[in-house]
Amino acid sequence: MLITDIKSMKEISEKLRKEGKSIGFVPTMGYLHEGHISLMECSKKENDITVVSIFVNPTQFGKNEDLDKYPRDLERDLKICKEVGVNYVFYPSVEQMYPAGYSTYVIMESLVDRLCGAFRPGHFKGVLTVVNKLFNIVKPDRAYFGKKDYQQYVVIKKMVKDLNMDIQIIGCPLIREKDGLALSSRNKYLSKEERESALSLSKALFKAKQLFEKGETDVSKLKEEMEKIMRSYPHVKEIQYIEIVNPENLEPKEKAEKGDIILVAAFVGSTRLIDNIQL
């Protein structure tokens, strides 16, 4: 069922909770792919009711980012949700979520100044604000986030803990295409040649993991090897970061250990892609 206004969604959630039903929630920006489907399926297994939100959130896009051209296809998304067996799709308008005079935001003082946050100022302020609002509207017991956006997953877990929210945050595995490319709605932007170069991210990550498993723990050497692989592809225009971090607090490491996360962000052509792997 498609719900387009906040009041109706809140009323449905209240009714479900009174009936003792558990609510699983998958927040998305739409243009759904197998990664999103894996989150929905996980929610369906663990909850009585699954709600998916589709909302391209303007406050998490910076100037000159791709808000206007971000792919949208509601009809296709609704078909996917129906096939998976989602109970409710929440599809609010920007005017509802941010009415005239809106001025309240969620700001975190740690974790957001590094990695993607260093290159996208204000991004996590927008993410945390919209997720907080969606949590207040949908009132889920559990919320599902893909670990492809690993920093986002950690940051949201921190917000929920800091603000004493009674919501369990479930991180689900990153999903890849057969050739290794991490699934992303932004992959649609890539030309055939650029898509070939986009594989450099996963190839660099797999190589670093392989070297680590053979005994290499020097982070600078692992990063150097990754950079060499990525720069060998013609359409990799800018490598924003390659970092090996603690999985809990995202602090950069000098010596890699089992469980650490390698994260990478780069522009392939004009498309910004991110990827990661756990050691």
Rank of each mutant, 00 (worst) to 15 (best):
K63R: 03
I137K: 07
Q278Y: 00
Y88F: 15
E213A: 06
I262E: 04
C42E: 15
G269T: 10
E248N: 08
D149Y: 05
M230E: 10
Y153D: 03
L181A: 01
E95M: 06
I107S: 06
A198D: 11
A100W: 03
P247L: 11
E46Y: 08
F145H: 07
V155S: 05
C81G: 01
M230H: 06
F119S: 11
P58S: 04
K139Q: 14
Y102T: 02
M40E: 11
Q240M: 09
I49H: 03
F267R: 09
N57A: 00
P121H: 05
P252S: 12
S232I: 13
A265G: 12
K79H: 08
R231D: 04
L67V: 07
V26S: 07
I156G: 03
N47T: 14
E257H: 07
F135C: 09
D179T: 10
F135H: 05
V106H: 01
V131G: 08
E83C: 01
I277W: 06
S38L: 07
E248M: 08
I242V: 15
P27I: 00
E257L: 12
E75P: 02
G215L: 14
L273T: 07
S232Y: 06
C116R: 02
L134H: 02
I274R: 00
K188E: 14
P92S: 07
Q168H: 06
N64Y: 09
A182S: 13
G126L: 00
G259Y: 03
F135Y: 14
R186I: 01
R272Y: 01
R231K: 13
Q278S: 01
L199T: 11
M230K: 00
K7W: 07
N164F: 15
G30H: 12
S93I: 07
R195I: 03
T217I: 15
K237N: 14
L128M: 14
M40R: 00
I37S: 03
E227A: 10
L190F: 09
R120A: 04
S43W: 12
M97P: 05
V89Q: 03
Q168N: 08
K209P: 14
D179S: 10
R142I: 05
K148N: 01
G126F: 01
G259F: 02
D68E: 15
G146E: 09
T28E: 12
V264L: 07
K207M: 11
D73H: 08
E196T: 14
A208R: 04
E196W: 09
K209H: 13
L181W: 04
F61I: 08
E41V: 07
K21W: 07
E11L: 11
N246R: 01
N57S: 00
D66M: 09
I274H: 02
N249P: 14
R114D: 14
S220Q: 12
R186M: 02
P121W: 05
D166C: 04
L67G: 01
V51D: 10
V160I: 14
I239P: 04
D5K: 12
D113R: 06
E46A: 06
L222V: 12
K158H: 10
M226C: 11
P140V: 12
V268T: 10
S93K: 09
D77M: 02
K15I: 09
P99F: 02
K45L: 12
G20N: 09
K214A: 11
V94T: 13
F25K: 00
N87A: 11
I261E: 10
G30N: 12
